[in-house]
Nucleic acid binder design. Structure first.
Lengths: 120, 120
DNA sequence: TCGTAAGGTTACCGCCAGATAACCACATAA
DNA sequence: TTATGTGGTTATCTGGCGGTAACCTTACGA
């Protein structure tokens, strides 16, 4: 069970999930995670500051946090380019992360349709 | 915009969502919402205590809360049977709620598969 | 040598979801 | 008259997420 946050691993071991769905939810829950997954899925690899420019309202610390958690859960890949100066870090979806994309896309479509219905 | 919680309505009006996906996420976020949606989708209408029996760890208050929020968001239908004694209340998915089911099912499948992969 | 850009970490603080537990009304059965 | 089963509400408390802001290292350019 390497590719999971401590927190989630504990929940699994202590059987604190009532259902497997909650594993999924706990991985994508987080104020910015699904938008990050979506952007990485659509735009491909993005650098830290590129993501921040896309979502100006996300704070530095929180973005850093969300990305680390996604990385720990095996959803996002973190590629560091030491040779470049200043150092560059590129984030992309792992193969596992890409399997999450259809869910995020469905959530996008659902939310979009619902939003339209509400505005009529 | 009747079928939405005050809280969510405000977020829409003040454009605090960065993307429509977040509307979806904010509707299904909540420790027990997706399992409730799932059970109502699979088992059909369920009474308050029936749900509680399915998930003994959910507290009375929280279940009541989650159901009310789902109702306010137009996902769950609340049917009261006054003629029966003691009073009976039946919860079921609304048509809108059923459109959410595919997403929940995908989350279920994803979580299940991920869980299996982890246990190998 | 000061500013700026890269990508972080750390400290502190406030708020709210969820946990816990007690309370309500109503009616039936023991 | 007490207990049990409906389906709730209310009060209080706490952990943790996210917000804000400061700090760090490396290196280029003015």
């Amino acid at each position: 069970m390497g590719d999971l946050r401590e927190e989630i691993r504990e929940k699994i071991e202590n059987k604190q999930f009532n259902c497997e769905k909650e594993l999924t939810l706990s991985i994508i829950s987080g104020k910015w995670k699904i938008v990050i997954i979506y952007q990485l899925g659509i735009d491909g690899p993005l650098r830290f500051n590129a993501i921040q420019r896309l979502f100006p309202r996300i704070s530095h610390k929180v973005l850093s946090n969300q990305l680390r958690e996604l990385e720990e859960d095996g959803i996002v890949n973190r590629q560091v380019y030491h040779e470049v100066v200043p150092i560059q870090v590129e984030y992309s979806l792992t193969p596992l992360g890409e399997t999450l994309l259809p869910i995020v896309l469905m959530m996008y479509d659902w939310g979009k349709k619902r939003m339209e219905d509400l505005k009529v």
